[in-house]
């Protein structure tokens, strides 16, 4: 077992330690009447399967899934962009579905299977979507890329399952999705790229989709 796995999730950085200490200090200094009673259970036990590895962790209920991954598990591939669900840089897969990891508490995902950008490759073999992003220059600075790639991987599954998007014609009729470039753009609109690598991103998704014969 490596060092990280044995660490309780709370003992991480000085900054967080200070935050917790301040909160406790405040609670001690406030008269009982002004407090909401019984806010005790600060640390809870959770189990996650992260990139196919089972992790048993003790966490503060306030920790987001994003902070759990980055700060506690050092899986820093997942990026914190806006931290408000507006940019998509924090996109990960939970039970195979893409979500913004900044807008969920880790504790709410207890027991679930989480896949981050670190979990997409099979050993040294990149995921086809990663390869396609490289081949088509689907990035410049790279900060949004892990979120873009995770999002695109889920996109292909959604299309395969026949899920419509806002630009799908006649969405009241159940039929296979034709993954046009407009469809790709709409379905990737939750991932912002401030370098503007969108052309390469659309090309990468198009190619990866072709490989999977969507």
């Amino acid at each position: 077992m490596d060092d990280q796995e044995s660490k309780p999730a709370l003992q991480v950085s000085r900054r967080e330690f200070v935050e917790v200490a301040v909160v406790s200090g405040l609670a001690a200094g406030v008269p009982a009447a002004a407090q909401t009673p019984e806010i005790k259970p600060r640390i809870v036990n959770c189990t996650f399967t992260i990139n196919k590895q089972k992790q048993e962790l003790q966490i503060d209920p306030r920790v987001t899934l994003l902070d759990l991954l980055r700060e506690h598990l050092k899986l820093t591939g997942t990026k914190k962009g806006c931290d408000h669900g507006q940019c998509g840089a924090c996109t990960v897969l939970v039970d195979g579905r893409r979500i913004n990891s900044c807008l969920t508490l880790a504790i709410m995902q207890n027991g679930r299977e989480i896949t981050t950008i670190e979990g997409l490759a099979a050993g040294s073999q990149l995921h086809p979507m990663q390869t396609a992003f490289i081949e088509h220059d689907g990035f410049q600075c790279g900060y949004c890329t892990p979120g873009q790639v995770c999002s695109a991987v889920a996109l292909l599954d959604e299309v395969k399952a026949g899920a419509p998007s806002a630009v799908t014609p006649r969405m009241g009729e159940i039929r296979p999705i034709e993954l046009s470039d407009d469809e790709i753009r709409e379905r990737m609109s939750g991932n912002i790229c401030r370098c503007g690598a969108y052309e390469g991103i659309v090309a990468a998704v198009r190619e990866a989709a072709g490989r999977r014969r969507v």
Binding site: I99, L155, P164, S165, M171, G172, E173, N191
Partner: peptide, 21 residues
């Protein structure tokens, strides 16, 4: 989708795939 497509349209017009999930 087949009975109330306006609801599908409206939901898909909002937010992003990640948020809707």
């Amino acid at each position: 989708r087949t009975r109330y497509p306006v609801l599908t349209e409206a939901i898909l017009a909002g937010a992003s795939p990640q948020l809707r999930n």
